[in-house]
Amino acid sequence: MTLSASLSATDITLRLRRTTILDQVDFTADPGEVTAIVGPNGSGKTTLLRVLTGEIAGQMAPGGQVRMGGLDVVDADPWVLARRRAVLAQQTALSFPFTVLEVVRLGAEGPGGAARALAALARVDLAHYGGRLYQELSGGEQQRVQLARVLAQLDEPVGPHGPRWLFLDEPVSALDIAHQLQVMEIAADFARRGGGVIAVMHDLNLTAMYARKVVLLQQGRCIGAGPTEEVLTDSLLSRAYGCDLRMGVAPGSGLFLLPQSAQIPHESSDLELRS
């Protein structure tokens, strides 16, 4: 990947009402892989995502910079950004009784929009929900409809100006395990086909499974950014979350998280703890 295709965040500091919410955050994410942002509640993950997507980039302290494949996010027009990246928020409210298909089509306009919207709905297993009222769906179904809307907005993972980016804020928090995996697969597939994915994650096991890179936040500071196995370490995680955490390696499926208070009999376990 060329450097210009990646997303770089340089010296991001953000103060809201005199409290420093992000403090000199620096990292680079590459297309072709999933980058996770993790950290405890209130550590600034959502705020960082809102800066990266341009939403509050203008409020950054001077000196901060976000570049998305050569495009300066701070100055970019909303409609230019909208063709290069799409954003799934932690929650999305809807104020009028739109149907599911109408919601998805809010992102997919123009010729081919209907086909794209239907394809996106099918990707999240909601192909038959098009005619239902969005407000009558369950929370998890609504979140999947919003993901479909976001997918329909971007069309292909690589556009004429280079890779497109998917920003997901806790995309799986409201979902059952099967749909958690499905959504993470969709994100991973988007990355495999050349797009970039930045996802705020709470579940460290899913993070270990799907993210190639991790940005670890603690109280607005980035205390680790890099390849997953270098950031999801016992010491960094314990420091970030303030409790004793160990990462282990499960045979055949890679890293997993083991909270130390869990009572797991060591003899019967064929899991091997990394030192």
């Binding site: 997507t53 341009g54 409609w79 950004l81 909208a82 954003v87 999305t92």
Partner: peptide, 9 residues
């Protein structure tokens, strides 16, 4: 926020 992300001024 979502409207902005969709490209609306």
């Amino acid at each position: 926020a979502a409207a902005y992300h969709l490209g609306i001024r």
